[in-house]
């Protein structure tokens, strides 16, 4: 295709992305290396309806004078990236020299917010991604095998975990797994422990978040695979059958290779989505037991003292994390592109 034709075709999409994603990305990069100016603090008397007391306030004029001519703020370089609430480099150094052994060292590292969150985020991503994709694949195979008339309802019901807004879906599930909810009681009788509470223990909370993650994201894999299954070349399948291939062999040598590009796509998307997990943590009030990088971004942006630079730095670290995780897939894709081009 000619460059010019290509440009016209891609233009609307590119403009939308440049304006609403690329520009914000640039501003996020800037924001992560610039922090707010030094605030001039003044001691004052504050009186409200309940009485007066000594307090402090920001001297707006003096602070504005300080920030004259530097609208971006104060350049701090990588200071935000390396501070205690992010990569915590100097804290790690201190822990390294003071720790009493590898166990203690790891304990102290995971007590740092970033690494604690990273541990959960990586566990979540590593478990939810393969299980959701595998489960989605099995559902697609099963739905594809039932009579056509039943497929519509089967598709709809399989999509339900994805359709019902997490806002309320998670609220209801959160209630169902309560120690007195229907699923919580079922779990208690299964485990034979009447005091079992999913919400009170860290391992169970992790397990619940991961199960919820698989449950809510496998419909996506299902739909993609289901669409893919419809395009499996029938003549190849039939000739394989004539050659006496077993069902398993057909699955292994015809269907799975055909769905491989879709699998690559699913792995890319799911790793990315799972690495950014935060909605279930918020809906399940799980912040005491599990945190993720995106949860910190959410906390920074919704706090009274908004930490925009911190949120920007965490966002950049999230993107870098995604790139690192995806790099094997990206390298593979690049090779296949090179092959296609040659």
């Amino acid at each position: 295709m000619k460059h010019k034709t290509f440009l016209w075709f891609i233009l609307p999409s590119a403009v939308a992305m440049l304006l609403f994603i690329a520009l914000p990305v640039v501003s996020v990069l800037l924001q992560s290396v610039f922090a707010p100016h030094e605030q001039v603090i003044r001691e004052v008397e504050k009186c409200d309806v309940f009485g007066c007391k000594k307090s402090t306030t920001v001297d707006v004029e003096a602070t504005a004078a300080l920030s004259e001519g530097a609208p971006l703020g104060r350049f701090v370089g990588t200071a935000i990236y390396t501070d205690r609430n992010h990569l915590a480099l100097s804290e790690i150094g201190a822990i390294w020299s003071s720790s009493k052994g590898p166990g203690d060292f790891l304990d102290q590292i995971f007590n740092l917010p970033f690494y604690g969150a990273l541990a959960f985020t990586l566990t979540y991503t590593a478990l939810v991604t393969p299980f959701a994709i595998l489960l989605g694949f099995c559902i697609a195979l099963a739905v594809n095998a039932i009579p056509r008339l039943l497929r519509g309802p089967a598709i709809f019901f399989s999509l339900l975990p994805m359709i019902v807004t997490p806002l309320v879906g998670a609220l209801i599930l959160f209630w169902m797994v309560d120690a007195r909810g229907i699923l919580g009681v079922a779990l208690q009788s299964l485990a034979g422990d009447p005091d079992l509470s999913v919400k009170a223990s860290t391992p169970l909370m992790w397990a619940m978040l991961i199960v919820y993650g698989v449950w809510s994201s496998c419909p996506f894999a299902f739909v993609v695979y289901y669409a893919g299954l419809q395009t499996v070349p029938q003549d190849t399948l039939e000739s394989a059958m004539i050659d006496g291939a077993t069902r398993w062999q057909r699955l292994r040598y015809v269907i799975i290779p055909h769905l491989l590009p879709l699998t690559t796509f699913l792995v890319l998307i799911k790793i990315m989505d799972n690495f950014r997990v935060f909605e279930p943590i918020v809906s399940f009030n799980g912040g005491a037991h599990a945190q993720s990088l995106s949860y910190f971004i959410y906390a920074d942006l919704t706090a009274t003292n908004k930490l925009l630079s911190s949120a920007a730095a965490t966002s950049v670290l999230t993107i870098l994390g995604v790139i690192v995780l995806l790099s094997p897939v990206i390298v593979r894709t690049r090779r296949s592109f090179a092959r296609a081009a040659s």
Binding site: I10, A22, L268, M272, F275, R276, I297, S315
Partner: peptide
């Protein structure tokens, strides 16, 4: 079929990695 296609797709992927809240 040009080489830049791969890079456009990769950049789109990085764009997608951006947390919506930050955007």
């Amino acid at each position: 079929g040009h080489r830049y296609v791969f890079w456009i797709l990769m950049i789109a992927l990085v764009f997608r990695a951006m947390p919506h809240l930050t955007l």
